[in-house]
Computed example of a mutant assay.
Amino acid sequence: MRATSPTLAKWGTPALWETLSPLLPGLSIEVVESIASTNAELVERLRVVASSGRDRHVRADDLNPCLLVAEQQTQGRGRLGRTWQSALGASLTFSLSLPLQRADWSGLSLVVGLSVAEALDPDGQHLGLKWPNDLWIKDGSQRKLGGILIEAIGVGASRVAVIGVGLNIQSLGQNMASLSEFHPGASAPWALGRLMPVLVQRLLRFEQHGFAEAAEAFAQRDILRGRPLTTTDPACPQGLAEGVDVDGALVVRGQAGPHRIVSGEVSVRPAPLAH
């Protein structure tokens, strides 16, 4: 664990490590005051290991899970190259690097989003999930509370997921939701401690069973289902969302019938509601 003692105490890192390390042997937890991007940092570390591994056998220790938390990110990244806005004390930004033995990672971002929603809103009253990787507040405003960014890095014979999560704890703008709206007084350390055990347990189940095991729970929070959509997929530019398939694909009924959208490079938005 890397951070100053006051920082470790504020984040409850020792207790969090005690909870998570039996599930993730070899886990390290680091908290830094400021960094460009937690995902970029872990990806670069893994690339260095992968490069050096060409000349030697990759050691098991090289692939140990790492949770990297930033009190502030200056160049946070989202899907499709978008930036992720964060502010000191008002955001939770972290990344987890984790080798996953499962060959098919379809639906992984959905499982991560589901675990965050389950941990912070167990009754499902406040948080909905927007395919493929966003958390929206369930008040009809289409405001985003958090997002997921997953990158895959090959290291020797293993494939490592770098799972980035960004959440708004306090309001960062008029069109952005925040955790404090339904958890007054929430802090980033509190949110991290609450969601990490749920996230790790969901990831371990995903490794064994894939997305199908979580499909029903995701459907209960699917904020797009039953809504008219517009998409950037030229094969189905608009249609009605019919939910998510057992492999995590979004099913949209267009003019030609049901159409599966599997690529996270496709942008999907609810069509404006008629008045």
Rank of each mutant, 00 (worst) to 15 (best):
T232R: 15
V155Y: 13
L27Q: 07
Q208T: 03
E41Q: 07
H209A: 14
A90M: 07
I169Q: 13
L229P: 02
P189R: 09
E216C: 05
K130W: 03
V246H: 13
V58C: 14
L127Y: 05
G226V: 02
G76W: 06
S28R: 14
Q238P: 00
L240E: 10
L16K: 04
A3D: 07
M176G: 05
L127I: 11
S95C: 06
R205Q: 12
L149V: 00
Q238C: 12
W105I: 00
L195I: 00
F94W: 09
Q125N: 09
A191Y: 05
A212N: 04
R82V: 02
D62S: 10
Q125D: 12
S178P: 01
L204C: 08
H259N: 04
L100M: 13
P122Q: 11
E30C: 06
G113I: 02
I150D: 10
G124S: 07
E118W: 03
R221F: 02
E151M: 05
L203A: 10
R205D: 08
S51I: 00
L135F: 03
P189E: 11
A214Y: 06
E265G: 11
Q125W: 05
M176I: 02
G243W: 04
G107H: 07
F94P: 01
Q75L: 08
P258R: 14
R47N: 12
R269E: 14
G243I: 01
G147K: 08
T74L: 15
I35D: 09
M196Q: 04
H126D: 12
A219D: 06
D55V: 00
L203H: 05
V251Q: 12
P270A: 15
L42R: 11
L100T: 00
F182N: 09
M1A: 06
D233V: 00
L167K: 06
R225S: 08
S21Q: 10
S34P: 00
S51P: 00
L63H: 04
A177T: 00
D245P: 01
G89F: 03
A271D: 03
A50K: 07
V252S: 15
I223M: 09
E71G: 12
